[in-house]
């Protein structure tokens, strides 16, 4: 999903150190997603975050299909790295390791 023209409610891009393509799928109401977003921000990596609950129906279907590739229960947050692997939940240690910290 191209986030360059997206409003802040649906998600945004956060600029930082390039550690691959990092996309956090979350919900705007979820506190674990908020913690994950804060962790990624504090680590200073370049990432996108998408609030799936704020998307239009077709965009939501697209996001859910992408999450399902990695996480059959489609739970949040799901942080996808380089479209290859995903970390489900606010797993600080796993996220740090996956991003080389």
């Amino acid at each position: 999903m191209d986030l360059s023209n997206q409003s802040n409610e649906k998600g945004s891009h956060v600029s930082g150190i390039d550690r691959g393509k990092v996309v956090m799928y979350g919900l705007s109401t979820c506190v674990w997603c908020k913690k994950t977003k804060k962790l990624l921000t504090d680590l200073g990596v370049d990432f996108d975050y998408i609030y799936v609950d704020q998307l239009e129906e077709n965009e939501e279907d697209e996001a859910v299909a992408e999450i399902r590739r990695f996480n059959s229960s489609v739970s949040f947050p799901t942080t996808v790295i380089n479209g290859e692997k995903a970390i489900v939940g606010f797993k600080e240690k796993q996220i740090r390791e996956a991003l080389g910290f």
Partner: peptide
């Protein structure tokens, strides 16, 4: 989380879990 529950009440009409879609 309470804020999320209230947001979901406004959006959907019930206290949907804030951490689930």
């Amino acid at each position: 989380l309470v804020r999320g529950l209230l947001a979901n009440e406004q959006r959907y009409g019930y206290w949907s879990c804030p951490c689930r879609l």
